[in-house]
Amino acid sequence: MDAISLIVRSIFVDNMIFAYFLGMCSFLAVSKNVKTALGLGIAVTFVLMLTLPINYLLENYVLKAGALAWLGEEYATVDLSVFSLLIFIAVIASFVQLVEMVIERFSPALYASLGIFLPLIAVNCAILGGSLFMQQREFANIGLATAYSFGSGIGWLLAIVGMAAIREKLEYSHVPKPLKGLGITFIITALMAIGFMSFSGINI
């Protein structure tokens, strides 16, 4: 039950894009048509769901103050949390590289449709943001952390696909010249974000 409520919350209330603006760069750059947006969304969800549980384990069994207690008494006082940022980003970057190579080797078709986005994902703030929020919220177990990563990924996917759909329709509208392209995209994002705020306060 906790997990479901967490998923719903992270999709709608704590939406990565509309509540925290994480992953905005690729959100703005790759939301020109629905198909590519969907591809990137799936890739982000995938990487988020792989890296967040790994980082959760690292955080709780290596990095946190006292996390090394399982090694023996004398390690119980070690606090490695200074390195968390370095470790998280190293995990994410190497994982993205790994996933890229595996997909390239075993599924060239998927690689062709997804491949170009994979390097982008290493620097997608939503991925690192997910890990950092995980650290901040101190989830009770790895199941909740995975649920959170799933919800955030789906929330991100939902946002970018919605945005792409609106932008496709926007082709036909008359926008003031200086606002064309980037400007109007920003305004739409803001309006969507205001719309998503109506979800805040939902408790399941």
């Binding site: 509309f18 603006f21 003031p176 200086p178 606002l179 920003f186 803001a190 974000a193 705020m197």
Partner: peptide, 24 residues
């Protein structure tokens, strides 16, 4: 939070109105 995006959009608007070569 959404107002930050709207403000940036306004800055973009003014900036591009002044620099016509940047308009898309």
């Amino acid at each position: 939070a959404p107002m930050a995006i709207l403000l940036v959009a306004c800055i973009i608007w003014i900036h591009r109105a002044k620099n016509k070569e940047l308009q898309e």
